[in-house]
Computed example of a mutant assay.
Amino acid sequence: MMNISPDQRLRVGVVGCAEIAWRRTLPAMVANPDIEVVAIASRDGRRAKEFTDRFGGVPIEGYGELIDRADVDAIYNPLPLLLHAEWTERALEAGKHVLVEKPMTDSHKESSRLIDLAGSRGLVLMENYMFLHHSQHGEVRRMLDSGAIGELRGFSAAFTFPPKPAGDIRYQPGVGGGAFLDFGGYPVKVAMYFLGKHLRVGGAVFREHREFGAVLSGEVLLYTPGGVTAQLTFGMEHSYRNSYRLTGSTGRLLLDWVFTPPETHRPVVRIERQDHREEFVLQADHQFANAIDAFVRAVRTGDDLRSQHEDTLDQITLLEGIQRQALHVKV
Rank of each mutant, 00 (worst) to 15 (best):
E211K: 14
P80S: 11
T160C: 11
P262K: 09
R207M: 14
D311P: 01
G185D: 06
D34Q: 13
R210E: 10
N128A: 15
L232K: 08
I4P: 01
E86C: 11
L232V: 14
S217A: 15
A191T: 08
I322P: 02
R270A: 12
R9P: 05
L246Y: 02
G196Q: 07
Y223N: 07
E320C: 05
E320L: 10
M126C: 03
D314T: 09
L152N: 04
K109C: 05
F55R: 00
S120M: 06
H276I: 05
H238A: 11
K102Q: 14
S120Q: 12
E219R: 11
L99G: 01
H108M: 13
S112K: 12
H133G: 03
G13A: 10
G62Q: 10
F159Y: 13
A204C: 06
L319E: 09
A284K: 10
E65Y: 03
A118E: 04
I322C: 07
A48N: 02
P103I: 12
E50Q: 11
L255P: 00
G154W: 03
E237Y: 05
Y171D: 10
A31E: 12
K330E: 15
R141G: 09
H286S: 08
H209R: 09
R300C: 08
F212P: 00
P27A: 09
G167I: 06
D168T: 05
T160G: 06
G56R: 05
G150Y: 03
R207I: 13
A166L: 11
V228K: 04
E101Q: 07
I271Q: 06
R24Q: 03
